[in-house]
Design a protein around this nucleic acid. Sequence first.
DNA 1: TCTGGGGTCCTAGGACCC
DNA 2: TCTGGGGTCCTAGGACCC
Length: 452
Amino acid sequence: MGLYALFKFGKIASFTRNICFDNIGTGIPWRKVDTMGKRIIFHIDVNSAYLSWESVHRLQHGDPLDLRTVPSVVGGDPITRHGIVLAKSIPAKKYDIQTGESIFSAKAKCPELVIARPNYGLYMQCSRAFGNILREYSPLIEQYSIDEYFVDFTNMERLHCDPIKTAYEIKDRVKNELGFTVNVGVSTNKILAKMASELIKPDKVHTIFPDEIAEKMWVLPIEELFMVGRATAKKLRSRAINTIGDLANYDPRLIKLFLKSHGMLVWNYANGIECSPVRESRRTMIKGIGNSTTTPFDVEDAITAYLVLLSLTETVAARLRQTEYCARLVSVSLRNNEFNSCSHQRKIASAIDCTNAIHEIACELFDELWKGEPIRHLGVRVSELCKNDFIQLSLFEKDYEKQRAMDRTIDSLRERFGTNAVFRSSFINSGLRFATGGTVDDEEYPMMSSQL
DNA sequence: TCTGGGGTCCTAGGACCC
DNA sequence: TCTGGGGTCCTAGGACCC
């Protein structure tokens, strides 16, 4: 593979430049937008991230068993109704165990399956250590999710060696220094780099340069294309579009007719057309903060539901204040014991960040939403954020100044002494956690947008 | 013991105004 | 009095990602 990739790299000078078609259906003849010259983008993806990290951690703490060598998964606890597979080992893959399926059904497929509980704090540390290695190769890196980074290696050949050699170096350094394996995809934009890193796993470097799209990407089934999920795949297959190549070579006007803008997005991706920059930080761009949980038991009365909403709101509001935002929209979501979901939202006249204020609205929304059936899942989300340094308090709203002072005090107590330092007495003997979701002092989870 | 949680973006339909 | 059309805002739900 190595020699093959190095050989392929010889073609790099003869790139056809990216062309974006974005005027489908406008009646205007094709407009060719020259995007950029010669970019080099890496996409680095940890192989079975949670499971690898768990294995390495256990080995380092004297466990003789390497989870990666046996059928194993990282998954939640079915007793508290969190029992789904979050990550699986390669031997588990051989039993057709899928990420997202229930632990119950995974065990049915493989009775000797080893199950490890997730440890998000550990994963966050691994993710950071991994990012720190990448930062040595370029000042411009983007964390796309907990286990994925993009690196813009454009013009970095002068400091390091050639891109393919560097990709191998990164892969081997992560393995040798941190103990887990990664795949590195190399190309001229993010979509091709990302598709390349997914090719054959684990511990591999792949390229999909523009002149390799047909050979390496078009032959793949349509489901393998980034942003083609179950629903889109079904629609495409019903029109005999079965491979990425079928989509790439289909008339984009027809795609747009039945898949709208999402159709154009995936048609562009199928053709390797994508020109978004590698962004150092997404943190300034957050759109909303939410927290939801599947309750350990069905909630059947409003008082308990209010308490769950409070526990969710505690973390949402604390994260909101931590990022120095206020919100103008509160939404509540609910899933009943028959797995039907619904949601309800409300705009508020003045932006807020108080736990009590958000909770009060969440409870009102809940009352308007709930029909009385048993509930298994509740969520609180705030959005339409604005900076909290200039809050306009409406004359008609309650004066929340005292509440804000109280929140500040609790936030600082928790910051100094841990999240457990203070909690509301209403949670005593409730069987519920007083603050659901990641603890407040955890570092912000790096989230990705659905587009690159 | 069957089915998580955190995000983003898009669309359709209704209300409302001109 | 009735009808129509365009624009904007709001809401709920769906699709996708890891």
